[in-house]
Every structure is written in C-alpha cells, then in structure tokens.
Design a protein around this nucleic acid. Structure first.
Length: 641
RNA sequence: GCCCUUGUAGCUCAGCGGUAGAGCACUCCCUUGGUAAGGGAGAGGUCUCGGGUUCAAGUCCCGACGAGGGCACCA
C-alpha cells in the first residue's frame, strides 16, 4: 500500500490507492481547494488519478509554474467548450500551451473576427462561473476514435490516427464538451480566473502552407489577476519601445508605400548607421579582413551556376537590358568568389577574408515585412573566408570571439546561439554535411557556449551557427551567423594550388557579425529605448544660448566641437532656456551646453546631462575630455548621470 | 503569399451617411527669459488610390496598394 512522501520529507501511509485530492484534504481544506494537479515522482497527474505505489509527490497549485501551465492548457479546453456552444459546426484542431498563454486552432466556415472573440470570452466567463467539475476518462485509442468520429471532430481523429496503437488516451469532459489531452487539467473550472483572449489569426493545419488555413485564437492566462495585469502592462511598455514608433519619434528613418520593405534613412538614423559601419570596419581591419565592393546587378547565369536561381528565382528582383536578364544581388557570396577567382591563389595565401558592406535585395513575402527587422533591401556586414578544411575550426573559433566582442560593446548579454543542420532540400554529400556540422559543433563546444540544435534549418549549401537577439516583445531575430560551405566555391570554379602543386577547391565560410545593419539598428533602438549612448548618439551635444547676447560664443563653441569631430547642434532660437532644455532632453541628446552672460564673463560653459544632472561649469577642453571618455566607454551602461 | 485588423493635417488621434475637427508641431507678432512647456494671432487636409450604392460617402459595399498582429517563408 502506498507510502506518500511530501516535499518536506514527511511521509503518510495509505491503506489503499490514494488520489492527490485525498492527500491534499488530509493536509488541509485550503490546500484541497487549491490543488490543481500532482507531481508524482516527476510526472504530472490529475488530482483524481489513484496513486498505487510508494511515491514522492508534490501538490501543484496556481502558484507553481507547472500549475500555471495546466491552467493555460485548461483555458484552451474552455475555448473549445465555448466555441462549440456558440458555433456548433466548428471543428477543434489543436490547443497547446505557449509562452504566457495558449491558443486553439479551429476550423469553421466563417472567419472569426474580434467581435467573435468578445463573444467567446464572455461565454468562457459564464462557464467559469458555473464552477463545473472536469472529468477525466482514460480510454483506448479505438474508443477515443469513435468518440470524435461521432462528434464529427475530424482533426481530432487525424491526431488519434498518429498515436501508437497501444497508447492510452485521456478524454477530458467539460460538461457536454469533450477534448483530448495528455493532461493533467484542472479538476474544476473554479481554478480558471485570470485570462484574456488576445488575438485571432490564420494558421495552417500542421504548420504547412499546403494545408487549409485554420483560425487560431490566442489567449493569455495567469495564476492571479495581479500577474495578468503585470503581463498586460509589460506588453504596453514594450510597445513604447517599438523601433518603428521610436524611429518616427526621433526622426531616424521612414518607409513609404512606393518602396515597401526598403528604408529611407534620415540624417539621424544614418548617423547611427555610419558609426556602426565604421566601428565594424575597424574590427575587420584588425582581424585581417580585406574590404571589397561588388556589383548590384549580376547576370542570371551566375545565379544559375551558384544554385540560387533554381531555389530562389521568385524571391529575387530581376531586371533586363539588351536581351540579358540580371538579378539584383540577394547575397554577396557569388560575387566574392569572382574576386577570389582573379589571379592564381596558393595555399600560402589562405585564409583569404573578403569583406563587403553589401547591399542586398530579396523579394520577401509581403506578410513577412516588419519595420527594420525584415526588409527587402538591407546591407550585410558580410564577409567570406576562403580557407582549407584544416583552417575551418580556427576561423570559426576566431569569428565567435569577434561576435562576442562586438555584442559586448552594445551591452547585449543574452545571445541565443543555434546550430542549424542539413535541410531536406540541399546540395552536397552527406559526408560533407557530417564534416561541416561537426566543425561548427566542435567550435561551439570548445568555447563552452550554451547552444542548441535547430535541425533541418541550415542553408541549402551548408550548416550555420546563428547568433540571435530579442526585440522588446521578445521576438527572436537572427543577427550574426557563420556558415560552412563546401559547395559553392566548387560550383563557381574557385581553386588554389596546394603544397604538392595540385589544384584544390577551398572551403568558404559565410559570416556576418551584425547580420544586417537595418535589423541590428532595429534591435538597438528597442534595446536602448531610443536613448543612444554617446558613441552612437546622432547628436552628442547641443549648445543652447540663454539670450542673443550669447549667440557668438555659442557659435564658437559649436565650431570647436564639430571641428573635433563631435556631433553637435546649435540652438540659438529666441526661446526660453527651459523650453530648449526640455526639447533637447526629449530628443535624448546626451549632453547640453548652456551659455549665458555668466559663462561669457568667466569663459566657461555650463554642462547638463540628459538625465537632468547639472555637471557644473567647466572649460571647453575639460568638457571635450568628458565627451571623449563617454564615447570610449561605448556600452549602454554609461550616461546614467 | 494566407487570415484578422487598419489607412483622416507634419505627429498623435476624434468624427462613422448631410458642405472636415482637437492637441502638439509649423508661420508671424510680442517677449531676451538662468536649467523639462512665456503670450497672442494665423496657415495647414481631392479624409491612401480606383470603382459602386445613394438626392448626398472619410462615413456603407467591392477591388488595389500600404501598414499592424499572427501563420507560412527567411539563401
């Protein structure tokens, strides 16, 4: 008969199989009331399932992470219950738990609108108010199958057909509604309190765009209304950091209908871009890269040879001239191989690292476009390393160091590292893929980095390491990458002479640190909330006059600063100093210089930081040192004062 | 590309069948003021574009294009 061990180490003996509900009741009525499920020897079970053998158990409530996930899962069932009451012909597909909530995919003759969402939400609240018990039935595959055939739930039947024959299936009965799930679920709808249905969207059945589109209802759910509010608040705050909003607010860039997915950079945004480019150029230079520039439009025959035409024809912009068809380059690698191919190369020359700030155009699907993050024209801080097989490891290793150095300069600490392996549609033999995937994995392990596999997500020519960053809404965007390519150099005739005078094909490593300037700046805007550290700030210092008696001195100070390559602006408008300070503060200029009669008399300047701190009076030279130091510091931690 | 939503002044938004509105910004005038908004006056819109319904259309319907959120895609 089971001996139950509780988390505090205490044990209870039972004379017969016992359920979580019974154990909880034995401890206290409050706990019995709060019990959502149990963790038995590491497995989650429903409160009503009898435990037959000696076990270590924990009673799960809405305070546990597992409890919240169960609540979210049960909310998905409630969506099912409500939807089937309101739209009896709807067919339920899948309703999993996701980060912060859940969704349910549903097939229905008419598409759901936000009004439907409101109706469903109201119905869910009514169902919760009923505080009905959720019953679990453990059934055979056959019975489950019959149940859903009878209910005309064809998607559920499809799911059942993929479950192994001997496996048991749990059916959760929500009054007249029945859903299928591994569980566990809450024993009663009284546990379901804090939720909101958040959005409707289309979603393909089984994630395949060849299948029909279902309708997805998203919701968020929490253990308490306080947590729900906190989450909704967080979303609101994140929206304020949206780079598209801030781009407008701080006059960095814009887009317009005539060129969807392409950026019009304004002076301030372009200033950030140029600082970034020059910074990367320095990094490249000290790491033995050679910068080149290659054509924008290239004859289609080159793309046919490289394999891009076959795979990406529809995704390239093309143009014609005198019976020839050109593609606007979607990537730089084929052109870089052309540069490599000029002149005979010796093994002594390798590795050769060719870098380009390469502007690429890709005709991305309209639905994929997203501010600066996903665009149709972008500039990569691209480079291709031509090397021998033996050199791969050290080059990958060296590159990873550069990525971390650069990301550190921007203050990024959570970098997501993935290794994408061979896709179904690929070129190159399995041996080559084995070798390339291993080379990348070895390099990551050598660095003792935290990384994971992304199976099947590699490029068609080779596997890749991706370095991704999150935006304000925690959406993940790939930025840096390094990719091993054993195929394209051969296809495009790249070769070098080895130590035995034999012609050999080099390996090519595609790599980018920032990825695209557009995306990286988008991430930076959100990371910094538009408040750029001095080294990146489009305007580093504003010079504000107090009265027009001070204008000439302001102009002098301004001239000194711009001659020393600081980014300064002059504000000698006939406005009060309070207004000027307010405006420049709101434009997030790191430093303000204020000049009035007093400064003019003692030949100093008064300096104020964006954060509102009065840095006092000083000479222009003293201030230039402050600026220089602030710029050298780089990372976001500065300009706190 | 697919589904839902959406497109009004430079910006943020109101108006939702009956001759276009607010705040901020802008222009001009007054004000020369010491560390986050001085005052007054004025100008500004074929309401994304193309069809349709109606005596009458930002307002309703259809289509195109763009944007937002998802899905799919992402060399």
């Amino acid at each position: 008969m089971p001996i139950i061990t509780l988390p505090d180490g205490s044990q209870k003996n039972y004379s017969k199989p016992v359920t979580i509900t019974e154990i909880a009741s034995g401890i206290g009525a409050g706990l019995a009331n709060a019990a959502i499920a149990g963790n038995v020897d590491g497995n989650l079970i429903d409160t009503c399932i009898p435990i037959t053998k000696d076990s270590k158990i924990k009673i799960i409530t809405s305070k546990d992470k597992d409890g919240i996930d169960i609540i979210r899962h049960s909310f998905a069932h409630l969506v099912g219950h409500a939807v089937k009451q309101l739209y009896p012909e709807a067919k339920m597909a899948i309703g999993p738990v996701i980060e912060n909530g859940f969704y349910y995919d549903i097939a229905y003759k008419k598409n759901f609108t936000p009004e439907d969402l409101k109706l469903i939400e109201t119905r869910i609240r009514e169902l919760i108010a009923l505080k009905y018990d959720v019953e679990v039935n453990i059934v055979s595959k056959e019975i489950a199958r019959k149940t859903f055939i009878d209910r005309n739930e064809s998607y559920k039947v499809q799911i059942i057909d993929q479950i192994p024959d001997n496996e048991i299936i749990k059916l959760y009965k929500h009054q007249e509604y029945i859903d299928m799930c591994r569980g566990p679920h809450v024993p009663n709808t009284k546990h379901l309190k804090s939720f909101a249905l958040t959005k409707v969207s289309g979603a393909y059945w089984r994630g395949d765009s060849n299948n029909e589109m279902l309708q997805r209802i998203y919701g968020t759910a929490w253990g308490s209304s306080k947590e729900l509010k906190k989450y909704l608040n967080k979303l609101e705050e994140a929206e304020k950091r949206d780079h598209r909003k801030l781009g407008k607010k701080y006059n960095l860039f814009h887009t317009q209908e005539e060129s969807p997915g392409m950026i019009f950079w304004h002076p301030k945004g372009w200033s950030i871009y140029q600082v970034l480019e020059n910074y990367i150029r320095e990094i490249l230079s000290i790491n033995d890269y050679l910068e080149i520039k290659t054509p924008q439009a290239v004859d289609r025959t080159l793309w046919e040879k490289s394999g891009h035409w076959e795979k990406f024809k529809d995704d390239m912009f093309t143009t014609n001239s005198e019976n020839r068809e050109y593609a606007i380059k979607p990537m730089n690698c084929p052109c870089h191989i052309q540069v490599f191919n000029q002149g005979l190369k010796s093994y002594r020359d390798l590795p050769i690292r060719l870098a380009e700030f390469g502007s690429c155009h890709r005709n991305e699907p309209s639905g994929a476009l997203h501010g600066l993050m996903r665009v149709r024209n972008f500039v990569q801080d691209d480079a291709h390393i031509f090397c021998t097989e033996e050199q791969i490891q050290q080059e990958v290793d060296r590159f990873i160091d550069i990525v971390f150095e650069v990301y550190k300069a921007f203050g990024f600490d959570s970098i997501i590292i993935k290794l994408s392996t061979r896709p179904a549609n690929r070129v190159g033999s399995n041996e080559i893929w084995d070798k390339s995937e291993k080379a990348l994995a070895d390099a990551l392990n050598f660095k003792k980095l935290d990384w994971s596999y992304l199976p099947g997500e590699g490029a068609f020519y080779g596997p890749k390491i991706e370095f991704s960053l999150k935006d304000s809404l925690e959406r993940v965007w790939q930025c840096g990458t390094i990719q091993v390519d054993f195929s394209m150099p051969g296809r495009l005739g790249a070769s070098y002479i080895d130590e035995n005078s034999n012609k050999k094909t080099p390996v090519m490593l595609h790599r980018a640190i920032l990825g695209s300037f557009e995306r990286f700046i988008g991430i930076l805007i959100e990371e910094y909330e538009g408040i750029f550290p001095t080294w990146l700030a489009p305007i580093q210092v504003s010079i504000l006059s107090l009265t027009d008696r001070n204008n000439d001195l302001c102009k002098n100070i301004y001239n000194i600063l711009i001659q020393n390559n600081f980014r300064a602006i002059l504000d000698i408008r006939n406005e009060k100093i309070g207004l000027k300070i307010r405006e420049h503060t709101m434009q997030k200029v790191p430093y303000m210089i204020i000049i009035g009669d007093k400064e003019q008399a003692d030949n100093t300047i008064s300096v104020r930081s964006m954060k509102g701190k009065d840095l006092g009076n000083m000479t222009i030279n003293e201030f230039q040192n402050i600026l220089k130091n602030s710029i050298l510091l780089k990372a976001k931690s500065q300009s706190k004062e």
